[in-house]
Amino acid sequence: MKHTFWTKPFYYVFAFFIASISLYPILLMILSSFKSSAEIFTSPLAFPKSFTLETYKNLLDQIPFMQYFLNSTIVSVVSVSLILITSSLAAFYIARFTFYWNNMLFFFFLMGMMLPIKLGIVPLFILMKDLNLLNTLWALIFMYTATGIPISVLILTGFFRTMPHELEEAARIDGAGNLRILWNVVLPLMRPALGTVMILQFIQSWNDFFFPLVFITDEMKKTIPVGMLSLFGQYSADWGALFAGLTLASLPMIVLFFIASKQFMEGLTQGAIK
């Protein structure tokens, strides 16, 4: 592809300009958490005059943050695993076979995204009560798995369809069963799609606060967003503390992302189908 002389510089300026817009508010949030409220109002853009961790210490003293963190981790890891397993099985079936009901099945899965799940909260609450799941992490795990399936099936089906049929045929002639084909042939090639689903669902279940608000009343079973929310009420006027709270709620996710991103991004750039 031919480039005119300005194409590349333009690419750079454009890409990095947008990146700065993406980053700046997050930076602002972290910087503001070190400021006093008065400082935030008088000079919202400036660097904080002094760095003190006092606000953070104060916040952490009031809540069992480690317990929240543990709960969030358990809930997110288990639901993401369940989503990956169930959705790739379902997407494999929909994308790689042509039973005449497949389109309907695909659409059936999509339907879950088309209604506000809050609509069903009363029947859900009764269901959880009957299953004895109220006030357990299982209630959250099942909810995140169930609500995560539609979008995951959509993404995985879309990408599974792009795979050439030859690879699969070869394995089939070798006598491989469906499960083996999915595991050994399809999934390894679909790392970018799986990675995308994984990170998306992890974020989703990590950040949700609606279901824990409704299903969890036990302090020791709360997840990070809900636990932090109860602090927000107390500090609605103290913006410095508010920003510290926002940063605390977001930090674990950001750190996790940086740890996992190398792995994850590598998977992406290696590409699937050459």
Binding site: I74, L137, W183, G267
Partner: peptide, 22 residues
């Protein structure tokens, strides 16, 4: 194959966490 490892790893993690959740 790398992905397979990752997948197994996740499944294992899941198992451990299910246990701990229980």
């Amino acid at each position: 194959m790398k992905s397979l490892k990752a997948f197994t790893f996740i499944a294992l993690l899941a198992f451990v966490f299910i246990l701990s959740a229980c």
